[in-house]
Amino acid sequence: MPLLDVENLTVSLFQDGTETPLVRNISYRAEPGEILALVGESGSGKSVSSLAVMGLLAKSLRVTSGAIRFDGQDLLTLKDEEMRTLRGRDISMVFQEPMTSLNPVRSIGSQIMESIEENLGLSRAQARLRAIDLLKEVGVADAERRLKQYPHHFSGGMRQRVMIAIALAADPKLIIADEPTTALDVTIQAQILDLMARICRDHGTTMILITHNLSIVARYARRVNVMYGGRIVESGDARTLYTTPRHPYTEGLLQSVPRLDQDRNVPLKPIQGSPADPFAPIEGCRFHPRCPYATDLCRSDVPEFGDGLACHAPLSIETREAV
């Protein structure tokens, strides 16, 4: 049984009396112990769909249809109180900005211990010992002394380690990491992602890695969902997706990034235009205005998602040679 099963999820923004869907009918599953990536550009719906899983949607956002099953339980039917118990204990989240997601006026120790006491019901003294263990596990040296320090004593990379320690406090089954390293330097990014991958391996934790960076995905995730305009347009195992993309958007993304292992004199092949505006009415496939292979069908009908793909004009060896 998958640990997380998202089925036909639609999330809409309600504003000024209008309803704008930001996540459109997406379905995916995360198996126990795997690292699953959600890749997309701004406005693709990757963050909103994960906030829906966490039950942390802003007031103006609502799940309008679909189901989110975690460990067999439908999260959308849970009461706020039950969801709060689940959050932190079974599902936790690591956010992009370690600068703003920690409370600046409380010590690191009290913030980690709060999560331990709340979720595991340990005494203060026991919680302190567990906090020290957690900090050691995430690679913060001199843990006992650092417990008393405040977020401003920590560098960006160290703060992100603290956030990971808090997320791990109750040994959750699922961690959702939303762009966990986007604000960090390259060498620190590698440290943090290695750490997260090791933790998933050692604890059998499932991780959903949300990112815009295709290269990170290639190194750390086994399976990938590519999102565009609120939909999953292609999903599959990373190897197949990167070597033989079937959706033109996936191909476009791969050709847009300069790579260290390619000739630098070959010009990049960007995708024309800008990412789909969720407020703009687009008939048919939301990628068609930017798609070099778009047909009349693409302009009129929304492609159904099936067999890991939502496209009327998928790439095959013939189409690649023709262009």
């Binding site: 440290q191 295709l214 290269s215 190194r219 990167y242």
Partner: peptide
């Protein structure tokens, strides 16, 4: 070495070494 390539096949064969410590 810290820059991953968008290529899972190549990444599998590469040995990754993270630089310890902070700036």
């Amino acid at each position: 070495d810290a820059v991953p390539a968008p290529d899972p096949v190549g990444e599998d064969f590469k040995e990754h070494v993270s630089l310890a410590g902070e700036i």
